[in-house]
Design a protein around this nucleic acid. Sequence first.
DNA 1: CTGTTAGCGCTTTCAA
DNA 2: TTGAAAGCGCTAACAG
Lengths: 352, 352
Amino acid sequence: MAREHAVGLTVRDVAARAGVSPMTVSRTLAGGKNVRPELQQRVWAAARDLGYHRNENARSLRPGQPSGLIGIAITNLGNPYYGEFAIGVEEVAAQHGRRILLGNSDEDQARERQLVADFVGRQVEGLIVVPAAGAKASHLSRAELEGRPLVLASRLVDDVWADVVVLDDVNGAYQGAKHLIAAGHRRIGYLGNVASVSTGQRRFDGFCRAMAEAGLAVEPGYVARQQQTAASASAAMEQLLRLPQPPTAVFAANNRNTIGALTAIARHLDGGAGWGPSVVSFDTFDLAELSPVPLTLIAHDARALGRKAAELLFDRADKGPDHPPVLQTIPVSLRVVRPEPPGRIEGAGPAT
Amino acid sequence: MAREHAVGLTVRDVAARAGVSPMTVSRTLAGGKNVRPELQQRVWAAARDLGYHRNENARSLRPGQPSGLIGIAITNLGNPYYGEFAIGVEEVAAQHGRRILLGNSDEDQARERQLVADFVGRQVEGLIVVPAAGAKASHLSRAELEGRPLVLASRLVDDVWADVVVLDDVNGAYQGAKHLIAAGHRRIGYLGNVASVSTGQRRFDGFCRAMAEAGLAVEPGYVARQQQTAASASAAMEQLLRLPQPPTAVFAANNRNTIGALTAIARHLDGGAGWGPSVVSFDTFDLAELSPVPLTLIAHDARALGRKAAELLFDRADKGPDHPPVLQTIPVSLRVVRPEPPGRIEGAGPAT
DNA sequence: CTGTTAGCGCTTTCAA
DNA sequence: TTGAAAGCGCTAACAG
């Protein structure tokens, strides 16, 4: 228990204490292959007494030795969706004995580029990137990554050679829009992400497909696709509510847009309006049950997305870099939180 | 532009290409002190053409060289509160050119211990830890950390020599409870965290103080302090609602408990009950505006908490390890989201 | 201003 | 089964 203010201990310190050579210490700590059990005991005891921690950086300096690090770049950790995603990655990484190097790109390409470069400099064994809006392939090329495996998560980027795991965006949005149409809605608004984010485009595509199949036009005046925050989504929703003929339902393409929409709708109702539009939301979120209007979620498991991303990374390490890229899709499912009351739509609309 | 599948490039490769010595490359990349501008140009060009990334691990191997890494252990990244916290830390760390090594302890002491040990092995320059429930001082001792600075965030741990940044838990809870009492409430329930988490204890203390000052007893039947998840909080709230004399108001000591409580209350109201208890919530959360009952938040800035934690860490690096530990408090403030209608309490309670 | 030498902590040879 | 030597990529310290 003579654990002093230990700093800068090395294998040699442990070796000296155990009365063996540094190599015996190294071998023991690496698993003990070809080391007499008795010596192993001595080494472990010495390491414990001294409070020795193997220097992982020095260890990975040797070529062929893995660094044990995985780099993750996320656009917005404050979004619980990405928080769950990160947990999923971390879970699988920890199972494989790897640690997470985390960066928040804040939806900024320059920052993302910087993060990726730094991850490479730190010898990460692989990268998992949720690409920022408008991110290009250049800083994600194989050359730039020095051959390290890359997994794109949640969002796609053109012309990048990488494994990809995304939600079933197109189909999910299609199902969600169909759900509204089947309930009788004809005037349907759309609140979504910028098109430079692949989910923004894919979900809008699914929405449009359902509308087209039903013979409904996607009115530009009902579409707002620039909202990255709940606050701006709330403002966009208010615009829709102020229209002479507001939509009877709204498709919100992610949790920030849904939260903004519901906030605006609640304010609207508190203001005395007796009526508010139904909502379909891509993504789940807390307190969905409190929705004052009919609400259906396009639900999915963000943690599973993170787990799958990490699994793809480790799979790639096994398969080698030359197998063709994999594209995995995480399923989504409709979850009706507050059903549409019968006959609601016929009488829908603002009091005139 | 001859950027090939570059892997394992070293200063020597760059030096060869630039026609200089490795030291000139090193000096240039380190800022260019005492290197002729012309040579610097050549070096940068060579590095760019080759796609060279400096090996940060090798760089930090040299004693005195900082690793550029900060370790963070968080209990639950999926909680947006901690997501915001992590962003705050990352922001400040990035400003200082440091990168984040992140681990999710999942409220598990063993996992936290493992994370901390690994962070030390990776030569982090400092650690920021949100201690898991019941975490003890042993694995956070100065010896165990080999003298690295430690900041405890959000929660306290006894007998740990570390800087600390916490929310103003006691006073916040006190103000929140007083707010309910001032509104006329006498039967007040409490939903909170386990006492082995310092916030759980501190917030309960503040609550009790306000109750005592008002001459009100804290009825054990109205107190539930074992909920770590929204689901269990919801169940606890249902219990309270089923009491013959349910509380007219509830103090929820964190966001998970509030979300559970509001969910249960909403279900209760949907079930036809005309009445539900008022709520005061420690922590903010999305969609608070949708609360069906009077709601006041004890609000604070989780990102600021993260920023402050990182600042304390860098301050400590300047001040040296022997200055006495600092305890910083992040202020909180009451925010009325849905006010108490006048005369509500007199008639409160279940229909009999 | 530039280059050479040496060594950070660890582990892969290779020899005993 | 154990140890000695060498070297991973980088940069202080010291020449030149």
